[in-house]
Amino acid sequence: MIETEPAAARNGIQVIARAAAILRVLRQNSTGMSLGQIAERVELPRSTVQRIVGALQEERLVIATGSGGGIRLGPEITALSEATRYSVVDACRQSLSDLSQRVDETVDLSVLRGTGMIFLDQVPGTHRLRTVSAVGDIFPLTTTANGRAALSMIPEDKARMLAEKEWARRGPSGNWDDLARVLEQVRATGLSYDIDEHTDGISAIGGGFHDDTGELHAISVPIPSSRFPDKKALVETALRDTLDRVRRMMR
């Protein structure tokens, strides 16, 4: 029996979806996983996972771990990720610089990866007393302006899962009902806040956007808390303008 084109297309889409699910599971387990562990997580037969993993290995999207028997993300994934990172950084750089000059404060760009916000770029402010985080630093989701901006833009069940994972890992436990109210306010206003919650003496305002690949990013402005009351209104207005500008670029 000859397979019809619509059925072939549906099967192709299903294979892609399954491959994507496997890659996402491996992204969250950087040390590697066995075929059985992957099959359990993605709820597919082990034989199906083995066939898909074999195809991904041929494209170097996954590789066997050094110890043997395990599978982890391969170098081609890293290359694709780096290409995306640099394109987003390049696209946003001028907007970040303009925002920093407008508010005379440091401006950060970060991306939601796994269970944290990874800093991709920063334009330092000119004040002698300023906030600086290194590119590559990972910030938590529940107590930071950029993390809350990201959480507010994903489905509530996934946001709750990420928050509870963070609380279990970092401790002490947070309260989902309290955080849910915070995230609802972020959705209503478009801006998120951290008032001395992540780092004593540092406050921040942030907002999120999706890039053209669908990845979730945040722009945030950390400010020494001693200056925050005087700068809050200016930063809110300037950050909203910048987010609008970046979102138009990403369409």
Rank of each mutant, 00 (worst) to 15 (best):
L35T: 01
V111D: 10
R170Q: 05
A150M: 09
A159Q: 03
D121N: 10
A19T: 13
R41Q: 14
A204M: 00
G207E: 00
G114R: 01
N146W: 09
A8Q: 09
R187G: 07
K232P: 00
D104A: 13
D178A: 13
V186C: 03
F139P: 03
S173P: 12
T65S: 14
L179V: 04
T143V: 13
G208I: 09
H127W: 08
E156T: 15
A163G: 12
E215F: 02
L120I: 14
A21C: 04
R46W: 00
G208F: 01
R113E: 15
V182Y: 03
M161Y: 08
G36L: 03
A188I: 11
G171M: 12
Q101I: 05
P45Y: 05
L80I: 06
R227V: 15
A9M: 08
T78R: 15
Q94M: 08
T237S: 00
K231T: 13
A159R: 03
Q37K: 08
R93C: 07
Q50R: 15
R169H: 13
V132P: 04
N175Y: 01
L80R: 02
D137P: 05
L35H: 03
N175H: 05
T142M: 04
M153H: 07
M161Q: 12
V123D: 00
R227A: 14
I22R: 07
T48D: 14
M153C: 13
R170N: 10
P75M: 05
G147T: 04
P224W: 02
N175G: 08
D108M: 04
D178Q: 11
I154H: 00
F209E: 07
P45G: 07
D157V: 08
F209A: 12
G207R: 10
R247C: 09
R181V: 15
T144D: 02
A17E: 12
G12Y: 02
R85Q: 05
I223T: 12
Q37H: 03
A204Y: 00
M250G: 06
T189S: 09
D104K: 14
T48P: 08
A149S: 11
L61V: 15
I138D: 01
D104C: 11
T115H: 11
V62K: 04
Y193Q: 09
G54F: 01
P75T: 08
L179E: 04
D157Y: 03
I219W: 00
V49E: 11
G74Q: 10
M1V: 09
G136R: 05
R245T: 15
K231P: 06
T31N: 01
S95K: 15
G116K: 06
R27P: 05
L191V: 06
Q28S: 15
V246G: 07
R51C: 11
D196G: 07
H217S: 08
D212L: 14
Q122G: 15
R160Q: 05
D244C: 04
G69C: 05
S225L: 01
R130Y: 01
S225K: 09
I195P: 00
E166K: 14
T199Y: 04
P222C: 12
T106Y: 10
T78D: 15
D196E: 06
T237D: 02
M1F: 03
S110D: 06
P6G: 02
F139I: 08
S226K: 03
L183S: 08
L239A: 03
I219A: 06
